[in-house]
Design a protein around this nucleic acid. Structure first.
Length: 724
DNA sequence: AGCACGCCGACT
DNA sequence: GTCGGCGTGCTC
């Protein structure tokens, strides 16, 4: 019996002989984590298949050991994994690496020479192995592998379990210790323990250096086994009576959707998927009995959950994508906010989690439910239970008539009202592609990133301006004069956060301002305590805390969200507006939009407090153009550091595909919207059509020489920027 | 993904 | 004459 072992690498499973030292018959090894030799070192993989008989062309290596006494996944979980890899057009290992980033734990590894062996076989440097068990670390792995292959190495491997550690005070510091050090020491004494140096520094209001100093001098120290995972205090809720258990629920407020979920979970255990941890945590307090699994948990906590699931009883679980493979006994899978872009896996598979969830449900034979404020068009095939959405208070400011930019007189008046009533406001910037760009007014020169085909963004810290690429992080000082024509008439402008920030300072100097973007988050404590002020930021705000006195949400350049070369831009914008309308659990803040398109269907949908009209319009358009969900779309992406090489490769690929494709199935080739990324030139082709047609085209994809080809199985966004 | 092996330019 | 660029190919 041979083992098919999947490693978290972009490869198909490899074949190994079963570990000879294990009493477990290989026939039972399916789903086990196994340690195998790989390129002279040890790696952890997953047994995803068994093969009868012996192998032909090359000598197989022997697996070293199973990591646990029990399997990690069931046959149905592995079946799903294999099918999902096929659906994502990637090797099984790629998807394994994406879905189980915690598959490979640090290993405790000990070795010795087999007792019967002659110590003289030991090469120089390994003589100690004849003396008995040794830590493998410190020996040359290549030499160890030589002994392993020769069959004279005995090995013990196990997961390195790190007991949770915490900082505690160890001894009273002497009098002459610095003021700050004393403060930090007393803070730790009062706290009892701290999870990290940074946490203690924060709590004590000192720098991390102070804590380090205390640690070095031995007044505080790390102790084992102290910390407990943070569990939010449980909160009770009243399940929302439902006329039936819907496959698709939309509308209502977040609180109602949580209550409706409670009703659903009463009907049997479910896997509930969330696009991001922040949203999961808003549900968590109401489901204290459910398992929780996500990437912010410590390895130790995750291991405990996985073991509990493997041990058996049915249970519901709140998870991010990392929980998709949990071997749970389920009745259903629930996908919360299935249109969220955070569901796109950033790794090699580029899979889209809701699509994987559908496959998972099919493989397990359980029902799949979508649970969102506004369902995606993809989900709308299912019959819905529509809760009445909160009626948004919408105020459209027509930029064709309003004066003042970026903040019109009307917008300023609204902000003044907020201030007068001691309330809070949010000013939201699209930022993406439209934030401050350094542009010369005389010759139209623009500061560009030397690595990416993107304008550099202008930032200001104090009096110094600097330029930064938001894609690759490249940074330089802003030039004083235009490098092209020598003019000093620069115009660093755009409706980015910085500019709005300054405009607010100028027009409303007494209104307290706070910044909130993915990169820069101000301390919002005063706002959370109810103090008046305005929060300026990007859509990262949606994932931030709730402002208790929120009265106004202002989008100075709402059109910036629609102006993207992307067939989903309007749908995204529409969803954003509904999300903004539901930002506060009870209040209905005024949503003020500065726009050149007050008649946009998304605006009409909000005015009528009904998303259906917009969505059916959008759906009809997609249908007419043959875009998803009316078809399957797949993106082929070719990248190379040399522009002509990448161009030739994509042209050749398109030429070979064109005779096989039907009209409308092959779009492009075209340079990617960001034509140069991290020093690579990127071109893409889109395939769209019926599922079987796309499958057939990809199955016979001509090999791409000379450039790197990647397949995006479910492209969500065609402007691949990282920023918010 | 890493990592080794293999052919063509600027240098201790 | 070498060191080193990254193009190509392989990993059980």
């Amino acid at each position: 019996m041979l083992l098919k072992v999947a490693l978290p690498l972009p490869l198909e499973p490899m074949t190994y002989l079963p570990p000879h030292a294990s009493p477990r018959p290989a026939a039972q090894a399916l789903g086990y984590r196994v340690v195998v030799p790989w390129r002279g070192e040890l790696r952890v993989g997953l047994v995803v298949g068994l093969e009868e008989g012996s192998h032909k062309s090359f000598a197989l290596r022997e697996a070293v050991a199973y990591l646990e006494p029990g399997p990690w996944l069931r046959p149905e979980d592995i079946g799903f994994l294999a099918q999902a890899a096929r659906d994502s057009f990637c090797p099984l290992g790629t998807l394994l690496a994406d879905l189980l980033p915690f598959l490979e734990p640090p290993l405790k590894h000990r070795v010795r020479l087999v007792p019967q062996a002659d110590p003289r076989v030991l090469p120089k440097g390994l003589e100690a192995l004849a003396q008995g068990w040794q830590e493998a670390r410190g020996f040359d792995p290549k030499l160890l592998d030589f002994l392993r292959e020769a069959g004279v190495l005995q090995e013990e491997v196990a997961e390195q379990r790190s007991a949770p550690q915490a900082l505690r005070v160890l001894q009273e510091p002497p009098e002459e210790l610095g003021e700050k050090a004393k403060v930090a020491w007393s803070a730790l004494r009062d706290l009892g323990q701290a999870e990290s140096m940074a946490a203690l520094a924060r709590a004590a209001g000192v720098g991390v250096g102070v804590v380090k100093g205390l640690l070095q001098k031995g007044y505080i120290g790390w102790v084992e086994g102290a910390t407990q995972p943070e569990v939010p205090p449980a909160r009770s809720l009243e399940p929302l009576p439902l006329p039936f258990l819907p496959l698709r629920l939309e509308g209502g407020r977040l609180g109602e959707r949580i209550r409706a979920l409670a009703t659903l979970l009463q009907e049997g255990p479910a896997l509930v998927l969330f696009p991001e941890v922040a949203l999961l945590k808003r549900f968590q307090p109401f489901f204290p009995q459910a398992l929780v699994f996500h990437g912010e948990m410590k390895p130790e906590e995750r291991r405990r959950v996985w073991e509990r699931v493997g041990a058996g009883g049915p249970a519901s679980a709140l998870c991010t994508y990392q929980g998709l493979l949990l071997p749970l006994r389920l009745r259903r899978i629930v996908v919360v906010e299935e249109a969220a872009e955070a569901y796109k896996l950033p790794g090699g598979s580029r899979a889209f989690v809701p699509r994987l969830a559908r496959l998972r449900a099919e493989c397990l034979g359980v029902s799949l439910h979508y649970w969102s404020a506004v369902n995606s068009l993809e989900a709308r095939a299912e019959p819905a239970l529509a809760l009445p959405p909160p009626a948004p208070r919408l105020h459209l400011l027509d930029l064709r008539q309003e004066r003042g930019w970026p903040l019109s007189g009307a917008a300023l008046a609204l902000l003044q009202q907020v201030q007068a009533k001691n309330r809070q406001a949010i000013v939201l910037s699209p930022r993406r592609g439209y934030s401050a760009v350094l542009r010369c007014k005389d010759c139209d020169w623009k500061a560009m990133c030397p690595n990416c085909a993107l304008p550099l963004r202008f930032h200001k810290s104090g009096r110094v301006g600097f330029l930064q690429c938001h894609q690759c992080g490249y940074e330089q000082k802003a030039p004083a004069l235009c490098p092209s024509c020598g003019s000093d008439v620069f115009d660093p402008r755009g409706p980015g956060v910085e500019w709005l920030w300054e405009a607010l300072a100028q027009h409303l100097p007494t209104l307290p301002r706070y910044r909130y973007t993915a990169e820069a988050k101000d301390d919002l404590a005063p706002l959370l305590a109810g103090a008046p002020g305005v929060l300026v930021g990007t859509t990262a705000i949606l994932r931030g805390p709730v402002l208790p006195e929120l009265a106004l949400v202002l989008l100075p350049f709402a059109d910036g969200f629609i102006l993207e070369a992307d067939f989903r831009a309007a749908e995204r914008y529409h969803r954003l507006l509904w999300q903004l309308a539901d930002l506060h659990p009870r209040r209905r803040p005024l949503l003020a939009l500065q726009t050149f398109e007050p008649g946009h269907p998304a605006h009409q949908a909000l005015q009528k407090a009904d998303p259906k009209g917009f969505l059916s319009l959008e759906r009809a358009q997609r249908q007419a153009l043959g875009y998803p969900p009316a078809s399957r779309m797949v993106k082929l992406e070719v990248a190379h550091p040399k522009e002509p090489v990448a161009r030739d490769a994509i042209l050749q690929l398109a030429e070979l595909l064109r005779p096989r494709a039907q009209p409308g199935e092959l779009l492009g080739p075209a340079p990617a919207p960001v034509a140069r990324l991290r020093g690579q030139y990127v071109f893409h082709l889109l395939l769209k059509g019926a599922e079987e047609r796309i499958q057939a085209l990809i199955a016979h994809l001509p090999p791409v020489r000379s450039a790197r080809l990647r397949i995006d199985p479910d492209p969500q966004r065609f402007v691949g920027l990282l920023e918010d």
